[in-house]
């Protein structure tokens, strides 16, 4: 896809071996879902590129009959998002359902009309999480994550909301790599090319809200995180100090969203510290 190629020309080091990464993600996704004792997976489908890619990977890993897509619009969600989600559902042929979250969200905020957009957005994200986990028990389907590496690092997500899942196949992919892989897996073009948005209010886009472009922040994070460049080395790559301060600040400030709840140590075998087992532990 031309748009993707143009992006990757600016940062060729972000280009993945698409076929290989697809094999890694789908084979481990399938194996881990089965080891967890589940036949099926469930995920929220917003109409955006991230959840679409998770859907396509899940279908490739498990087959369309083992994947359930859930659309959970709020009354202010853009109708085009709902239509894009429908497009992905039709294209993959998975089972789907639509649950309008407007009644419970509006009921909750009725007595708090002054609630900020941030609170409303977080509440919606957690409502959707809550629905997915409820349906997970009903359908015996594991919840699949849809957060990419860029947004996890930036903390551009709601803790215990959209960042919650049992397995996340996207969490180690930069947003630019999500785009590359989505194109490779034939996610509908309009989902790939539209501006990414959390779709919490009209005309919201990630890049407007964050104040920078994904390709720029991916380039920066690659050199800072993966290559461990110092500030001096990053400056030589023409990254502006104000941009670096902003991004580094976000990444560090949001570390709490990437960790399990802190458990204050009292005993010699504390969960997460010296009680150490993988989830694969079967005794």
């Amino acid at each position: 896809m031309k748009v993707i190629d143009e992006l990757l020309e600016q940062a060729p080091y972000l280009r993945l071996d698409e076929r290989l990464v697809t094999t890694i993600l789908t084979s481990t996704l399938r194996e881990e879902v089965e080891k967890a004792g589940f036949d099926r997976v469930i995920l929220g489908l917003s109409g955006g590129i991230d959840s679409a890619l998770s859907l396509y990977l899940a279908v490739k890993a498990l087959g369309k009959d083992r994947v359930i897509a859930v659309r959970m619009p709020y009354r202010m969600s853009s109708p085009s998002s709902l239509a894009d989600a429908e497009l992905a559902i039709e294209d993959t042929g998975v089972e789907s359902m639509t649950i309008d979250i407007t009644p419970q969200i509006d009921a909750y905020f009725e007595s708090m009309p002054g609630a900020s957009p941030l609170r409303r957005g977080n509440k919606m994200a957690r409502e959707r999480m809550s629905i997915l986990y409820d349906l997970s028990a009903d359908y015996r389907a594991l919840v699949i994550g849809t957060s990419n590496r860029t947004e996890l690092l930036l903390g551009y997500g709601t803790q215990y909301g959209d960042t919650a899942s049992a397995i996340n196949p996207l969490g180690d992919l930069w947003k630019t790599q999500v785009r590359q892989l989505a194109a490779y897996l034939n996610v509908p073009e309009q989902i790939i090319t539209k501006p990414p948005s959390a779709d919490l209010w009209e005309d919201q886009t990630d890049e407007k809200e964050l104040g920078f472009r994904y390709i720029d922040v991916d380039r920066f994070l690659y050199f800072w995180i993966d290559r461990r460049y110092t500030r001096e080395q990053l400056q030589k790559l023409s990254f502006q100090d104000s941009f670096m301060d902003q991004v580094m600040g976000r990444v560090i400030r949001n570390q709490f969203k990437r960790t399990m709840p802190m458990i204050i140590k009292v005993n010699p075998r504390t969960v997460g510290i010296d009680f150490r087992y993988l989830r694969d532990w079967k005794g």
Binding site: I24, S27, T28, E31, E32
Partner: peptide, 10 residues
Amino acid sequence: VGSEDNFSFY
């Protein structure tokens, strides 16, 4: 080959 949690043996 196979996986252990998020690790993939190739």
